[in-house]
């Protein structure tokens, strides 16, 4: 497993406590940077991730302002990722974290595993549904969780099956 004393620190597999805590500005900036790295790793944003920020902010807000609070998990993730950056340098840190982290399967029992399950994995899900899915496969127009929005006047709702009149008889 990657990382050192922070990443490999053993913790309970239950939710890290977060009630009563708040994310600092620095925490948020760091978490956003972590999110942006997802798009860089999988190259699945068209220009940059800024168009996804309002969805990301909505996720963070919902996860920290309502019980059970994710604040503890988010703060944990900032320390975990910082240790990886300190150890491996920024580029390799994110590569290892996303693609080669060595976390064993099963409930998360280390700080690294917590960060992966509750922060990174959920950020990935959000990133994919907010438009990251568009970069895989064909011009699929819709995905579970994707909100079409203003595009629905200019672009099709989904990839439609169009058959000829002869076929339809």
């Amino acid at each position: 497993m990657i990382g050192n004393v922070i990443c490999q620190d053993k913790v309970d597999s239950g939710f890290l406590p977060g009630e009563g805590q708040e994310l600092s500005h620095q925490n948020r900036e760091f978490l956003w940077r972590l999110f942006v790295e997802i798009g860089k790793c999988w190259k699945n944003v068209k220009w940059d991730s800024s168009n996804l920020k309002s969805s990301w902010i909505d996720l963070i807000k919902a996860k920290t302002e309502f019980a059970p609070s994710y604040t503890g998990e988010y703060i944990n993730a900032t320390y975990v990722v910082q240790e990886l950056i300190d150890m491996y340098g920024e580029k390799d840190a994110f590569h290892k974290l996303f693609l080669d982290n060595g976390i064993p399967s099963g409930p998360p029992t280390t700080r690294l595993a917590h960060a992966k399950k509750y922060v990174i994995d959920e950020f990935i899900k959000m990133q994919v549904l907010a438009s990251g899915f568009k970069h895989f496969g064909g011009p699929n127009s819709n995905y579970h969780g994707y909100v079409k929005g203003s595009r629905y006047t200019l672009m099709p709702e989904v990839r439609e099956f169009i058959e000829s009149i002869e076929e339809s008889k």
Binding site: W42, F98, L99, Y143
Partner: peptide
């Protein structure tokens, strides 16, 4: 095709 699950599992693009 659960793209997110594939990314979570560490699959490359």
């Amino acid at each position: 095709i659960d793209i997110a699950s594939l990314m979570i599992a560490g699959k490359t693009p």
